[in-house]
Design a protein around this nucleic acid. Sequence first.
DNA 1: CACTTGACAACAA
DNA 2: CTTGTTGCCAAGT
Length: 107
Amino acid sequence: MKKKNYYEAVYELTRKIPFGRISTYGAIADYLALGSARMVGWALNKSFTGKDVPAHRVVNRKGELSGRHHFPHPDLMQKLLENEGVKIENHVVQDFDNLVWKPADEL
DNA sequence: CACTTGACAACAA
DNA sequence: CTTGTTGCCAAGT
């Protein structure tokens, strides 16, 4: 399999995020080494619709739901995460340090 | 082709 | 909390 565009790599990686876990732009960008965290956010922006990408599991380095504004409804992201057992407080993931998932985690 | 913007990171002040 | 800086790359204007 050849490597697709960087955004498809982001999509796949985002899909690999286990249930009840989250990831960060930095972790994804660092693992893919495709460019930078901005690329991840930009890719997710286009991916959250039309693709089965659980973009709600991707947060910024602070564990903040930075991307909630791009969802159909801003509070949807938080609701989805809470539905997976992830506690959110003030748009920030609780136990973020413990829930953050990295691609290398399964290696 | 140049400039700006973007779901960012990371640090400094 | 805000503001600034540097890096990174693509898309939009």
